[in-house]
Design a protein around this nucleic acid. Structure first.
Lengths: 353, 353
DNA sequence: CTGAAAGCGCTTACAG
DNA sequence: CTGAAAGCGCTTACAG
């Protein structure tokens, strides 16, 4: 037994080959190597070949820091998300990462939720000179906010933004329509007392969905009733239980609801747990945003699904177009919504109260 | 109406202040500014204050590329995950990001699944000189593999690794015990025909859980039966329906199973959907890994939960210890498991067949 | 306590 | 077609 473990972690790192190493090995200059490795315009085939071989043999790959320092712009983009534990954001990240990888770009992430300000979240990305930013914070997009200022300086694409921005591209769904359509669906199936559930006032996107719900309710001559469960997953279920216990009681103020409309995936889960806990098997349940496993819920969950992959892919596409120099005015795109009616067909029809 | 939109995206970026700008403004040299901004050992209070004020006024923040180029090591770490759309990985990422942010480190991500080789996934991180790597690929850790080689060069912590590594720290659960414990739980409740469901042979971690299942079955004199549903979410449910339809048929070969044990979250969802679809309400259902919303499933899901947040936080902690110079031999930590029996109490007891 | 100078690895005009 | 040289912004011995 020796005092030195066979392979202790973090042995001195084998030095990476540099451009000069390659140049020396190929018997030429760094300038030429650099040219060859960038499309090689105007270099002899023979020399070019020698350089390539040397690079291969030395396992050369560019040092991005040096390149970025010289060029002023990193081949990396930043992604700011509200919360990576929510699948919506993971799906966005996955798509953006794929697009970036295809183009040889790195992806630096930062979390913009958890009481961190947008500025605090984004600074680390800026100090790395990222070439652009995908922002998916759910609360962003205040016209006068930090992001607008930032977007004047480098390409920014907002995902799930509450409103079209004057300074950056946005991709998302029509949140107002989402709230309206799902509400109309429930009304068409005979529901008259429908509860809208959101997370909190800071979730601007969800609040817009609520406006759609309220418009649809009023258009049908019905009284909107809504509640908010907050942002903390740990508290959501508990609060949902209390709310549902009260509002499903026919005797209570605003009571006797027959359908629940969840405005965002984050609260859908808590509602589902609460309904299972309370055994509310014939309360109709509909939600904006799909949820993995929702078809196994009891009661089954009807959803207005957004194509998150399409949103993520499109956001990346727009960002890279801007990075490549596109300076046309900002675009604001909405992806289509898809109503998925789950369970044994339709929501259980209920007599109007 | 003018031809130029009021705020076209990507206006020429306002130049960031440099160290020299700060030095000039403060009437001193770059060396001094650098010293002040790094703890300021041995600089006059007065000069130090002047520098700080200048830095503040110019909105100075360090250019990481330049720093990294000079120092040779980035203040960033890399995270390689199998699939960001799976909440497990999102939760790991969130914890690692938090720890990194606290230390002023950036987080560069890369996806190692989707047919991308580990090498291809990790190269972009290496070319950015990351200071260390958290690897959570579920299939990693082959002793002779690329990762082992990599770990000899820079700190690597493996999450959810199938086996202790000689060259890097690992954090995860005891997969063999997980399979065994949950199986014993089902056996204790009277089940004798229990099906284990995995994803595929490449998911080494899941295969180890299966070994635990088989050991427990054999120890009880029972015959193990297992199946694999593959890696594609789109196909999982369909395959689960076919498998369950056959194996719950008392007449079939290996048929008449009374309990299903899911080896990994990725297939749990498909199984839940299939069971809902087939109306298999009294099939007992247990899974390794918890799943959001699982308490709303029908039938409810008993799970052996791993503390993913603890795993992520610990992985980050170990990584930064290595980055800070810790060269003690690799550690292999296991976080505790927690059995959560869901539903109206226990799994439905069944008569042995 | 402070500053001038070198150099990290690369790209890019500029000469030749 | 090729190379020498400058310089991106920073840190760090090295002088003073």
């Amino acid at each position: 037994m020796t005092g030195i473990p066979p392979s202790a972690p973090r042995a001195p790192r084998a030095a990476r080959a540099t451009l000069v190493d390659v140049a020396t090995a190929a018997g030429t200059s760094a300038s030429t190597v650099s040219r060859v490795l960038h499309g090689g315009a105007g270099v002899t085939d023979e020399l070019s070949e020698r350089v390539r071989r040397a690079a291969r043999e030395l396992g050369y790959s560019v040092n991005r820091q040096a390149r970025t320092l010289r060029r002023g712009k990193d081949t990396a983009i930043g992604v700011a998300c509200e919360d990576f534990t929510i699948p919506f954001f993971g799906r966005i990240v996955a798509q953006v990462e794929r697009a970036a990888h295809e183009r040889g770009y790195g992806v630096v992430i930062t979390c913009a939720g958890a009481g961190r300000s947008e500025e605090e979240a984004v600074e680390p990305l800026l100090s790395r000179s990222v070439a652009g930013l995908v922002v998916a914070t759910g609360t962003a997009g205040a016209p006068e906010g930090y992001l607008a200022e930032l977007a004047a300086e480098l390409p920014v694409v907002q995902v799930d933004a509450p409103a079209p921005s004057a300074s950056s591209d946005t991709v998302g769904i029509d949140n107002e329509a989402a709230g309206r359509l799902l509400t109309e669906h429930l009304i068409a199936h005979g529901h008259r007392r429908i509860l809208f559930v959101g997370s909190g006032p800071a979730a601007t996107t969800v609040e817009i969905r609520r406006r759609g719900y309220e418009a649809a309710m009023r258009a049908a001559g019905l009284e909107p009733v809504s509640t908010m469960l907050g942002y903390l997953p740990s508290e959501t279920t508990e609060r949902a239980v209390a709310v549902l216990r009260e509002l499903t009681d026919p005797g209570a103020q605003d009571g006797g609801i027959t359908a629940v409309l969840s405005g965002v995936a984050r609260v859908t889960m808590g509602l589902a747990s609460a309904m299972a806990h309370l055994g509310l098997r014939d309360l109709a349940f509909a939600a904006i945003d799909d949820l993995a496993g929702a078809d196994a819920f009891s009661p089954p969950l009807t959803v207005l699904e957004q194509d998150v992959e399409a949103i993520g892919a499109r956001a990346a596409q727009l960002l890279f177009a801007r990075i490549d120099g596109d300076r046309t005015p900002p675009v604001h795109e909405q992806v289509p919504l898809k109503l998925i009616v789950r369970g044994s067909g339709e929501l259980p029809p209920r007599a109007p109260r």
